[in-house]
Structure formats: structure tokens, C-alpha cells
Nucleic acid binder design. Sequence first.
DNA 1: CTGAAAGCGCTAACAG
DNA 2: CTGTTAGCGCTTTCAG
Lengths: 353, 353
Amino acid sequence: MLSEEVTIHDVARIARVSPSTVSNVLNGRTERMRPETSERVRRAIKQLGYAPNQAARQLKTGFVPVIGLIVPSVANPFWGAFARSVEKAALAAGYQVLLCNGERDPEREQRYAESLWSRGIRGVIFGSSPVSFDHLLGLSERGLQVVAFDRQAQRADQVGFDSISVDNELGARLAANYLVTLGHHRIGFLSGPIRTVNRLKRLEGFRAALEDASVPFDEQLIWEGALSSSFGDIEGTDIGRVAARDLLSRPNRPTALFAINDMYAFGAYAGARDLGLRIPHDVSVVGFDDIVLAEIVDPPLTTIRQPLEPMMQAAVKLLIGRLEETRTGSPEHTMVTPELIVRGSTARISARD
Amino acid sequence: MLSEEVTIHDVARIARVSPSTVSNVLNGRTERMRPETSERVRRAIKQLGYAPNQAARQLKTGFVPVIGLIVPSVANPFWGAFARSVEKAALAAGYQVLLCNGERDPEREQRYAESLWSRGIRGVIFGSSPVSFDHLLGLSERGLQVVAFDRQAQRADQVGFDSISVDNELGARLAANYLVTLGHHRIGFLSGPIRTVNRLKRLEGFRAALEDASVPFDEQLIWEGALSSSFGDIEGTDIGRVAARDLLSRPNRPTALFAINDMYAFGAYAGARDLGLRIPHDVSVVGFDDIVLAEIVDPPLTTIRQPLEPMMQAAVKLLIGRLEETRTGSPEHTMVTPELIVRGSTARISARD
DNA sequence: CTGAAAGCGCTAACAG
DNA sequence: CTGTTAGCGCTTTCAG
């Protein structure tokens, strides 16, 4: 069944030219040969169904038009959409994307990064934003280019990288501030383990907004879930649900919840429902990300939008710039502005009976 | 910045052995050398941070431990979870996964498949289940192994492939039958373009169930949406919403909706809401797939479960069996049984006022 | 305008 | 137990 692989020599033989001429045709250097020659070659290629062996080409040229993408897990709709955006931008620039589910596990991430390096891939986009990139230090020193998403540079960073992020602090501020405006003073903060820079920032922004409004901050209302096992954090829904159930069944329960992302918010919906509480009547909920589902759920989710497509377009551009060395020098950290999208999951506190 | 690549020769030099010895320890053939030798090699490897050049290895051995995965779009949560399952199974078997968003576009799929082939990848799992695989005929004849998901073989198929599917017809039957049992006689069928085998089967099962129950079948209640542009069919939600809105605003509106998958069902939720209709009070909804979100939404979705993880484990096993030629011969078509998961989106018709 | 030759980094006989 | 050798399929000077 497996027919012999057809090589550039076969094509050359059929076209009655040398392998190098075929190679030249393949690489668009047709200007220095008779049109009929290149035509003959092209026909031979078609006839044999020849496809260049990329491994050989890569071995020779050292170049691979592929970038790596490491996200926690594409099973999570946010990261799915994220990956899709990256692929779109990369494809447009002539690159393919090798997707890796790192599950927020530094070891796994490192293994993946090493495997990418081994395959000749020299650039990677990092979706999760771990507090430290130290596990990539070795590779980075060798020349691996990394672009981080939602992960501004920190003082302690040893690894150099470009980044593009939404202003997470501002986003959280917008959310908290909006809730305060609606009269909410007891606001729960729902999160998984706060071990990523963006979550840290969101928490900071949340606190800051309360402070600005002179709303007393209650440490008890910060709910930080454990890293759920198995599928990475696909199910912020799990944590969100448990968290909401816990917070909302306390004697002096919060009147609003700010979820670290939309999946947690959906979880909170379920948690509230478990308790017979209605949104936004009994409790307001704000999310973060604005994934597609956010406007589908009932009630449609008020949330903070991250403009994913343009961001990932920029990320890919940053990375390819590095790879093709059209851009060198010190890291670039782009920050984009998030936007509050008001939908139906929030209401004035006075709406409560 | 980009330090020289370190090769097997560098390691050999440092360890004071020949390249072949290094190669041997790399490939676990250490039994035929003094322990101290392999130890020396290992240390040199560590010291230099050496990683084998996979392109070279591949060129030499002709083997690539990678399988391709073509799905419509990982932006769709179902395909995200699907991809994640495949990755998990593949990783366990020592393979990586190269993910491709084919957007249900045969041309795109073909381009991707060719690119995979070029990279030496000889096996691919197909997520979408197009009516025809003819666009893969050329590659298949050359030896590309394909395993299809939810795509039983058809009489007209030219391309040979293994497959694993849920019994789609049965699944739809279960759904329709359950609705009939609840007293529903006018049931809408929500779908995008019915151009995939699994959708065809689901429609057939739906019809058959109605027939069995002697419920008159109303062609008008089949809603077949157009292929939405942009992001593949990420948003079954769009179509589902429009479809539900249309069907439910008719004079003699259906009392229940069967959505071709959970995303469409979510869309239907939104559509019903747009009309001020409540689920399941005013209209019952059944989905298909049982994605994670199905039990999170409000009300939790009654749906047909596809046991993704075991299915994809089987799919990967099938494919790798072919690749490693431990399995040859005629195609295998495995069919697994779907399960009706009753949740809160369905109710007896008498519940209506 | 076209071809010959060398070599990318690795593996696998086969010698020693 | 270890090293020598000969390519895998391609690109790329450099000659003709």
C-alpha cells in the first residue's frame, strides 16, 4: 500500500533536468531558466504528486515555518478560541501552529518547549501566564523566543520575552467599580489558584477599586480554589460553582460576585441556582474575557472583554518579527485596554427584596 | 544571542567517544557498552544541554511520532474537548498531535493533509465527518492512514479508513423517543447544513423515532441552517438561536426542539428567551454530545452523551496500530452506544398551561 | 541557463 | 565494547 516516497530526483529524471533545477523551481527561482524548463518540471511534479520532504529541507536550511503555542488546555472554550485566533494570524503569515496543552504544569510546559526546540521550532506563544518563566531559562538562553499573553514583565523575571496583555488591573477595576456603582459592597472574588500574573493583577485591581470607593475589603470574600486535577483548569465551572455555593450560603452573604473569568462565572451561575438564588435578582455576577458563550447564557453575562483577535494578531507579529530578525533588541510589552460589557447578570442592589 | 546548535559530534567530543556511541545511548542501546561510557555520555549531554535534531533523525529513520488531527475548529468547545482527548491518548502512546482547524472546508482540509504528509506524518484523525473523503484520495493512495470520527463507511466511499462512531441514529432516536414519551408531537429539528454523515444519521434516527410512534412528521420543522462563515461552525449557537426564534414564533409552534448538538441547543435556549419562552415550561430542548457546559447551563441540558474519552482512546489506538503495522487489512468500524442523559430542559407537555 | 558536488545531523550496518 | 562509513532528501554555491 505504501508506495515509495517520491523524491526530487524522481522529478528531475522525469523532467529531464537536474535536481537542483527542480529545487529552484520549488523555491520560485524560475527567472533564471527557460519557461519551458520550469513548465516541464511543474508537470512532472504534478504527475508524480511530489511533495518536498520537509525534514530534509529543514535539515538543510535550519528554518521551520512553525510556531509553538502553549495553553493550559483547549478543552477550555477560552483557550480554544485563543488557539484559533493564533492559528488564523499565523497562517496568514505563512506559519503553522503546533499546539500544546500545558495544563499549567511547569514540567509539562518545559517538556513541550524542549520538544518544540528539538523540532527546530524557535518561537513559542505562551497562553498561561505563570508567575515565573524560569523553567524556560535554558531554552531561552539558547535562543528560544517567547511571547507571553496577559503576562507583563516582572522585576524578578530572568527570561526575556515580549508580551501583549490586556490591562488586567484596569479590567478588574472596571468590574468592581461597576458593581460598587450598583450599590454592592460585599463582593465575592472567585478564582482558582492565584499563581498567574494576570490573576494577581485582577485581584489587585479588584482591591484597588474597593479602596477607591472606600468600601471595606473583606478578606473572607476572596475565594481561591485549588488547582483542579485532570484536565487542566478546563472546569473553572467546578471551582466557580463550589465557591459560589460556599460564599452565598454564609450568613452575611455577598450581594455580588466577580469571577476571574467567564467559566468561573458560569460556575457561579450554577452555584447560585443550587441555592435557589436568582441572577441578578439575588446576586449579581461579573465575569472576565467575554467568551462567545457569555452572551448566550441566561442571563447574558456582564463581563470584561479581552479583544483576543487583535491581540493574538499582534502576538504573532511580535514573534515572527523576532524569528525573522526584523525585530531585535529589548522586549516589547504591549498593553491593550479592556472594556466593560454590561449585560443582564448585574443589577442594582436595591433590586433585592 | 542564538548560540550555536550543539550536535551529536560535540557530545561525542566531550564524552570522548564516537558519535555512534552517543547515538546508541540516545536510543537506549546501552547494554552493549560499559556503564561508565554511557554515564560519561549522559553527563556530556546534560552539560551541553544537547537535544537531538529531530529533522535529522526523521530524515534518517523516516519515522515521525506525530499524528495529525483535523477538526472544524477548536474554538468550538466540543472540538476543544475532543482535541484534548486525542492529545491525551496520543501522548500516552508516545505520539504528539498536530492540530488543524479545517473549518469543514474540503480544500483547507486537503491543504492541511498535504502539509502533514510533507512533514512525514502518515496518520490523521478526522473529526468532522464529511459526506465524502474524496479530497483525500490521492494521499490515501500513497499510504496516509485515516481514522474517522462519527463517520461510518458509506457505499460510495473510495477512500479506505477506520472509524469509530457513536450510533448516531440510535442517539437521535433516544432523544426523539424521549420527547414523544413526554407527550411532544411537534418537535423541531435544529441543525446546520446537513452535509455530514453524522448529521444525516441523526436526522434519520429522528424521523424513524417519530414514525415508530406514529407521530406525523412535519417537514417544516426541520431547520437546516447555512454554513456560517468565519470561524467554522463555532457558533452553532448562532444558528440555534435563529432557528429557535423562527420555529417558536410560528402560529402552530413546536413544543420541543431537538438540537443536532449541544451548542445548537444553547443557541435554542437564547432563542427561546428572546421570545419570552421558558424552558422546559414552554418548550423542551434536547441536545447531543453532552459537553461539559451542558450540566452548567440553566436549566441543565437533557442530551445524548458521546463517550469522547474512550472513543478517542480507541481512535488513537486504531491509528497507531496502522502506523506501526501491527494492524493491517480491511477497515474497522467501531460503533459505540450513546446514552440519554435526562436533565432539566425537558418536561411533559402537560406542564404547559 | 543548467548541473555537479558537498554537506545539514543523525542512524545503523559492519568492522575491528 | 566502540568506531568508521555511508547515506536519508534537500539546498546552494560554484562551474560550465
